Computed example of a mutant assay.
Amino acid sequence: MAFTLATWNINSVRLREDLVAKLLREEAPDVLCLQECKSPVDKIPMAQFTELGYGHIVARGQKGYNGVAILSRLPLEDVGDKDFAELGHARHVAARLENGTTIHNFYVPAGGDEPNREKNEKFGQKLDYLTDMRDWFKAETPEKAILVGDLNIAPREDDVWDHKKLLKVVSHTPIEVEHFADVMEAGGWSDVTRNDIPDGLLYSWWSYRAKDWDAADKGRRLDHVWATADIKNAAHSSRVLRDARGWEKPSDHAPVFATFDL
């Protein structure tokens, strides 16, 4: 079975319902994982998505903040969620396809502006969240699994517009990159996107603060697709749909795609 998966921090699924529908119509991924839905599950506007063929959903939500959802044309089984770092946030949900593949959808905390847990509680929460992820995957080694989402870390030098300038900026600090690597190692995860696109600058997020985000191109690769070692070689055709960042009233993130032959 071959299926295409996309991950997208939508920054409010209700506000950007039509952008989700546009993506589903024009790109037609089999599975779409959304983060920062900012909606209780029962308020997610499913009617239009169902009409487009995406009648399956596994989601966790809360009013106004966070929220993760997996929309699918393929049947899904809800296989739970974890409250990492005990934040009480809707930041993780997992679903299983009929072929036995488990999909983990994550929205890792952004971490605030100051990369110092003593001065900034949010940064400490981010590190604790990643530590809990590491420990969970170490204790329960995943198999035949895909992990996607806005992980809010750009790990490589070519995942940011200027490595040296961003070393002290939250999302690219050495301690975050170290925690990111620890999570990957603990679960035996492989970076599908960089396996397919190994060289060159690659971004999935551009700040709203830039007057012309496209011309400035000061991006970061915060959105990721991983696979466990047993299925990493089944992944291909990775891409970032950069054009979506330029749609009307867009999210500041662009969707990231990968196809799996399983």
Rank of each mutant, 00 (worst) to 15 (best):
L166S: 12
L167W: 04
L167A: 11
L167V: 01
K168T: 13
K168H: 13
V169T: 15
V170R: 09
H172N: 06
H172P: 03
H172K: 05
P174G: 06
P174R: 12
I175L: 12
E176M: 12
E176W: 10
E176G: 11
E176I: 09
V177Q: 13
V177P: 02
V177A: 10
E178I: 04
E178K: 15
F180G: 07
A181N: 13
D182C: 08
D182E: 15
V183L: 06
V183R: 03
E185N: 12
E185F: 01
A186V: 05
A186K: 05
G187V: 07
G187H: 01
G187M: 01
G188N: 08
W189C: 05
S190F: 08
D191T: 04
D191L: 06
V192S: 06
V192E: 04
T193G: 00
R194C: 00
R194I: 00
R194P: 01
R194W: 03
R194S: 04
N195Q: 14
D196S: 14
I197D: 00
I197H: 09
P198M: 04
D199I: 10
D199M: 03
L201D: 09
L201I: 14
L202Y: 03
Y203D: 06
Y203L: 09
W205S: 03
W206M: 08
A210R: 00
A210D: 12
A210Q: 10
K211L: 10
D212Q: 11
D212W: 05
W213R: 15
W213Y: 14
W213E: 07
W213Q: 14
W213G: 04
W213D: 01
D214K: 15
A215P: 00
A216F: 01
K218V: 07
G219T: 03
R220T: 05
R220G: 02
R220I: 10
L222F: 10
H224W: 14
H224P: 05
H224V: 02
V225E: 01
V225N: 03
W226A: 08
T228L: 02
A229S: 15
A229C: 00
A229M: 10
D230L: 09
I231F: 02
I231R: 04
I231D: 07
K232Q: 14
A235F: 09
H236G: 05
H236M: 07
S237D: 15
S237Y: 06
S237Q: 14
S237F: 04
S238I: 09
S238P: 04
R239H: 12
L241C: 11
L241M: 14
L241R: 14
R242S: 12
R242H: 11
D243F: 07
A244L: 06
A244E: 09
A244T: 14
R245C: 06
R245V: 08
G246R: 13
W247C: 08
W247H: 11
E248D: 14
E248N: 13
K249F: 10
K249M: 11
P250L: 11
S251I: 12
S251C: 12
